[in-house]
Every structure is written in C-alpha cells, then in structure tokens.
Design a protein around this nucleic acid. Structure first.
Lengths: 344, 344
DNA sequence: TTGTAAGCGTTATCAC
DNA sequence: GTGATAACGCTTACAA
C-alpha cells in the first residue's frame, strides 16, 4: 500500500525544507533551477497531490457546494441537480448532496452539518414541511454567518437571498389559455394537497386564465391529491362523476395517472379530454398518448443557481455589506404532444 | 453578520487557554465545574460549532463518502443513491456525488479530485466508456492508497474490492422462463449496443432460458439499440417485420417504447405480445398497460454498498493487510403487471 | 485544575 | 536561493 505522500515526506527525503518543496512545486522564482527539477521529479515519481483538506483549512474555502433537496428520486430535482453539478464541476467545485425527504428536521440537521465548514455555499429547494411550518431560522442563521445561499423552485419571501424560480403562475395560465383557444370549455385542475408554493402558483394561473376568458370557476372541477401517496380511488371518483373536456395537472405523474384512469373509463384522449402536465420528463414523452407538458428547464435552473452561487462565493471578500440579491425567473415552455392534439 | 466563532475566540474572551476551552466543551473531568459552566454557557450563547475541516485534518477522516455514477437523471442510479444517502447520513456521513456522464476522463478526474483527502471512501458504478476501454488504473491507484472502494452494478473483475451486484443473468433467465411457462414461444430480446456488462449478462440469461427449454435461438429476434440516443426507426422495422409473442427488454424505457410501437402497429399487449422490462421504476407502474418488470432493488443495493464501505472505513486502522473482499448479490424480483397477464 | 506545545498539511512572510 | 516560523482550528499528551 503506497500511502499518500506529503510535503514533509518529500522535504525529509530530499533533505530540504518544507517551504522549499512547497515553493518548488509552485514553480516559484525564488527556488534554484536544479532544486526545483529535483523536487518536481521526485513529486511526480511519487505522484504527490496536495491535500484538499489542508488547503481548505488554510484558505477557508472548501470548493464544495452543498445542495439540499426534498427528494432525489424525482425527475425535476434530478434534472436541476445535473445542471448544478455540471456547472459547479466545470468551475472546480464538488457537490455535496443532502436529501431533506420533505422533512423540516432533516433539512435543519443537514444544513447545520454542512454549515460548519464543509461547504462554501448552499443551493436548496425547501422541504414541504418547512414551507408548511413557515420556519426559516436555519436559513437565517446560515445567511447571517455570511454563507451564500441560493434558493430554487421552492422558495420563500422570508429570506433575502438569490433565488431561481420559474414563472409558475404564468406557465399554468398560458397552458390553460391554450386549452381554451383550442375550444375546451370545462377545464379541470389536478393539484397537490397542503399547498406547496409552486402548486399554489400554478393553481392561481389556472384560475386567472378561466376568469379572463369568462369561464366559470367551479371548485368541484379541482382535485387535490396527496403529494406522494398513491390514492387512485379519489381520482377515479373525481373523473367518473364530472363532465370535463380538459385537465391541467401540476405534475406529470398526476397527468399520466389521470390519463390512464380516464381511458379506462372509456374516454378518449385527446378527443374527449385533453391533458396538460407540468415537469416535462420521461413520462411525458413515453406515455400513451404522449403528454403535452410544461418544461421547467430544470437543467438551466440548476446551472443558473450554481452560477449565482459561485459568483457570490468568489466575490464575498470585498463587498461585505452591500448585499444585493437577485431573483432569476426561468421561463417555462409548453411542449405540445398528442394529449392536446386537435381543435374541439 | 455574526461570523463563526472558534475556540480561540472563546479562549480570548474568557481569558483561558484554548485547550481548556476544548476540554470544557467535551465535558472533560479535568476541568473545574465552574470554568466548564462558564465556557459552555458562552459557547451556547454564541452558538459555537466545531469546524469540520479542522477536525478532518486532525483525524484524517472526513466523514464524507464519494459517489461516482454515470448519470443522475436515471431512475436506477437515483434509487441506489437514495439508499446510499440514507444509510450514510444515519451513520453521520455526508455524500459527495460526481457524475461521470459515461465518460472515462470525467471518471478519472472526479476520482482524483476526491481522492486527495476529500473523502474517506468511494462507492461507484463504472462509466460505459471505462468498461469499453477496460482501463482501471484510476481505481487501482485509489485502492493502493488504501482508500476503501465499493463497486455496484457496473463492476469489473480487474479490481479487487467489495462489490454489490444483482443476479442479472438469473433474473433474465427467470423472466424468460416465466414467459415460456405462460405459453410464449417466440420470445424477442431488446438490449443495448456496446455490451454494457449488465446487458450482456441479461442477454446470457435470455439465451440460457431459451436453450434449456428447447426453444430455437434466433439472432434476428434480438434487437440492439444505442444506450441513450433515441432511434425509433430501428425498433419500428424490427417489430414490423418479425413474428413474436413476447419480448424481454433490458430496461424499462426500451420496454415502454417498444410497447408503444407495437400497439401502434395494431397488436395488443399482452394478448398478442407480452412484455417484460428491467428496472422497476415509475414508467413500469404508469405505462399502459402497466409493465411487468424486474425490480433491481436499487435502494437496498445502495444501502448495502454504503454499509460495506463504512464498515471498511471504520475498521481500516487495525487489519492493514488482511484484505478480504466480498461480493454481495442482491436478488432481483419480478413484479408482475398487466403486460404479461394471461396464458397463451 | 489549567496551560503549553506539538501536530494534522499547507501557504505566506520574513530572515538568513 | 533557502529555511524558519506562524497561521488556519482543533485535539491531546505532557507540564506546571
């Protein structure tokens, strides 16, 4: 087993001082040509690599960024993560991920773990529970310590920091508007219980589109489902007992499931009922019929978040006080597929 | 901005030495009751938290584990990751993820970055390119340095280390056997090009099942598709021009796509053609018809890998030389759904 | 009971 | 040109 070699080893072996070795390896002008060559050759031979931890301690920079997301087995978060990871990596940063599992406590614990020196900044989407509790002290503490923070998707007005969101309200509005333009009149909504931030905004957009086009807003055309738990009974009853010609769903899982239920009830998609989902993932592309869906551009979102964060991290030293925070809005786009084909 | 406080600050403030503070905060018997209380109160007040980096440097343990996977927007890897993350977190470890993107170079770079002190051990699945090149020097170096490594799913015999795999060959064998038992006789295979390890094993299982049941092995009933790129033309031609009554696919994406194509060609699933996929993910549950699929138990796999790794990490100090490596086999299970219903 | 000092691996400043 | 020294934040023998 060849253990990792340190400056000290090289110094001892070549009978020079540690600082000489350090400088030689940085090709410093101070060091004589022959000594440099000798040291560099030795270092190469033994495959010397500086110890990241020691450098972190010295520089007070870890070159790590902490990402805390509610769930990892989830297309959207995964996509955002890829955007973060790619950008960060290109900039020489590593990414430490923690999953809050929608739990407030886990979010707090993970944040505290990472905040004690492990990372230079955070990128996160709030846990559902955190949004419900409306308790953001853990975020406040972190920002007060001067650790840069970027929130994405699941954000809050309570915290002043950089944010990246999509135009949820508008995207839903535009999707519904399109349905209306194609002749649909009885448009239902399938959304989540418990009012996650984003679902709430999408719901607003849905209502606004109806109102602005003089369509009646019927509360009984709105179905609220639990966020993760499967509950097909409720959906079946909903679709069986109501008349509608289009459905907006706040995510693609709800949409694909609903399409399945509706088709089993003998209705045709899109002829009888059109469907639009959010989160343009693999399900949308592979369902039958393929699903028209709002693409949230997760990867771009992640990249944007990472860019904002790294920007803050690397400029932190000078402008101490002139805190200026930005909210970037990623414009969602509607990807049209079979589930909304045709004019009614 | 309240900057993070250190032992030194506390010591200076309370006019004691750093070591006294350190000991007091660990509730050491050495320190007098009143001093302890004074120090602890002060620390609590200013919310003192030890700096992880300093501790890492001291202990030569980072409490981080490095995970390198080919892709993150991928149900199976994501599931494994969740298993790793949960177990690791419960044991007080954080997880640093790097994505190799199926690239050999990225895999090497990421490994080297992390190996220089950032992590205590690796869990990884090999990049496709790495398996093709058959070059594992980066893994060798890491293990020779005494950094524990656990490979999962995409493994290699070239490296001696702990491994976690599923019984791919057997799982495919059993799936095909089941198809045969239900009366299917002309069974096709949809697999990946380039022979990823796992696909190759599944292919073997497919062949073995046919042979053992006296069915003819027809090479033209085997379709090889590119791993990621969409190429529907090829599939369409395949299904249009051949007669078959069942299909085994090496992943659920291939399966769901194929089902779509076949249905568009006017055939019924499962009446005319039965389908079985691998990777029991969300697609399998939500496709129409729902897909019978081999559950690879990713989460268990991740948890197992994390357990093996942490075990090695925490026992490294004593048994230096008596290297004993283990290969855990997770038994895949067939989840039967609509796509294989009924007897022919 | 408290403090001093060395050490983890590096870098930077200053002396020789 | 080269080396000693201090520092990053913490732990821990060992002194006092």
């Amino acid at each position: 087993m060849k253990r990792k070699i340190t400056l000290k080893h090289i110094a001892r072996e070549l009978d020079v001082s540690i600082s000489t070795v350090s400088k030689a390896l940085k090709n410093s002008e101070e060091i004589g040509q022959d000594t440099k060559e000798k040291i560099q050759a030795f270092a190469r031979l033994y495959n010397y690599r500086p110890n990241n931890i020691a450098i972190s301690l010295k520089n007070k920079k870890t070159k790590n960024i902490g990402v805390i997301i509610p769930d990892i087995v989830h297309h959207f978060f995964t996509t955002v993560f890829r955007g973060i990871e790619q950008y960060a990596n290109a900039k020489g940063y590593n990414v430490i991920v923690c999953v809050s599992d929608e739990s407030f406590d886990k979010e707090v614990i993970n944040m505290e773990m990472l905040a004690n020196g492990s990372i230079d900044g955070f990128i996160m989407a709030l846990a559902g529970e955190t949004q419900l509790k409306n308790d953001y002290n853990h975020l406040k503490e972190v920002t007060e310590q001067g650790i840069p923070l970027v929130l994405f998707d699941r954000v809050t007005d309570e915290i002043h920091c950089d944010k990246v969101i999509i135009n949820d309200e508008e995207a839903a509005y535009l999707a519904v508007k399109k349905l209306i333009a194609s002749g649909r009149k009885k448009i239902a909504l399938v959304t989540t219980e418990g009012y996650l931030n984003v679902s709430a905004k999408r719901t607003e957009g849905y209502y606004r589109a109806l109102r602005e086009h003089g369509l009646e807003v019927k509360p009984d055309l709105v179905l609220e489902l639990p966020y993760q738990k499967e509950d097909d009974k409720k959906s079946e009853a909903f679709f069986k007992n109501r008349s509608m010609d289009a459905v907006l769903c706040v995510n693609e899982i709800f949409a694909v499931k609903s399409m399945g239920i509706v088709q089993r009830l003998g209705k045709r998609v899109p002829e009888d009922i059109a469907f639009v989902g959010f989160t343009d993932g693999i399900l949308s592309r592979l369902s039958t019929p393929t699903l028209t869906s709002v693409d949230q551009h997760g990867e771009l979102m992640g990249e944007t978040a990472a860019r904002m964060l790294i920007e803050k991290i690397e400029n932190d030293h000078d402008q101490e006080e002139e805190e200026s925070y930005e909210t970037q809005i990623i414009r969602a786009t509607l990807v049209e597929r079979e589930s909304t084909l045709g004019q009614v």
